[in-house]
Amino acid sequence: MNPLLWMLLDLLLAAMLLGLGWAAVATRDLKRGLALFIAFGLLLALAWARLRAPDLALAEAAIGAGIAGALLLAALRSEPQDGQPAAAPSRVFLLTLNLFSVLLAVAIAWALLSALAMGDGVRLAQAVTEHLSQSGVSNPVTAVLLNFRAYDTLLELAVILSAVLGVLALGPARPGYRLPGPVLYGLIRWLVPLLIVTGGYLLWVGAHAPGGAFQAGATLAAAAVLLRLGGVDAAGLPAAVVSRWLLAAGLLAFLAVGLLVTAFGYGFVQYPPDLAAGLILVIESAATLSIAVALALAYIGGWPSRRAQSGSLHTHTTEGGTH
């Protein structure tokens, strides 16, 4: 394609991102702001695809726009709508804030442009490409996440676990939703199994193409969100005892594998090259389940009520819950 056309596309996408971002944070109507934020997330996924980062495009569409949007919308539902309008900020404050924002933008833009101008520095990408064949996977992003920088991902799973423990400690779940009408119910019956299959596919394909544990976990969590919207209070999660173990499974499997290899003379999370593919798959499978349960619990906002877990509310509920 003509470079000029590419530039026009880039400028258009950039302008839409800035416009939607501005509109999402500037509006006084929160509901509208949230709808704009979700649209912003989807456009951002397009920008990731344009910048040749398909792993990010998948994650953004599923997590950044999907799960985060659902979380914020659910929070809006319990937010009191009347909220008295805040006192208008003083003129001096506004002026200072605007001045500060402009100065900050100029400073960061200068730093970014000088970083881009340096261009041909040594990149870690070279090291990744050289060692990719020993990592056990052929998707460089998965190799970085699960092998070369495994510490990051290990600690990230710990961060997710602690965030969800925080959510669970803060109180009971939000009230559930009514049973849906026949159209939504039919859609859910189709979509939930499809999402579960897609999640499994993304997990498997992550070894050699865009995908992986995070995208797969988010897709499974999306199935849980749908079930919850369809009136299944437990959102398809297993009993609390099982859910607790699933929640910790990713971190536990990662730690177990990391420690196990040290017994054979390797460093912590330094896999033997010929076993790496299998070990990464084990960790990713456990991480997928953990991320799915974590995001679902974060959306529910606490443990679903005991009544819902028995799953005998209604025929719809039991049918939906067994998918």
Partner: peptide, 29 residues
């Protein structure tokens, strides 16, 4: 190819951002 290291960091960032959002919303509630 684009540098995969920042991609992996941003992927981590997206997931951490949504966890932090969930925790912040629960704290707010």
């Amino acid at each position: 190819v684009p540098d995969p290291v920042p991609h992996a960091l941003v992927l981590t960032g997206i997931v951490v951002a949504v966890s932090a959002t969930a925790l912040a919303l629960a704290l707010g509630r």
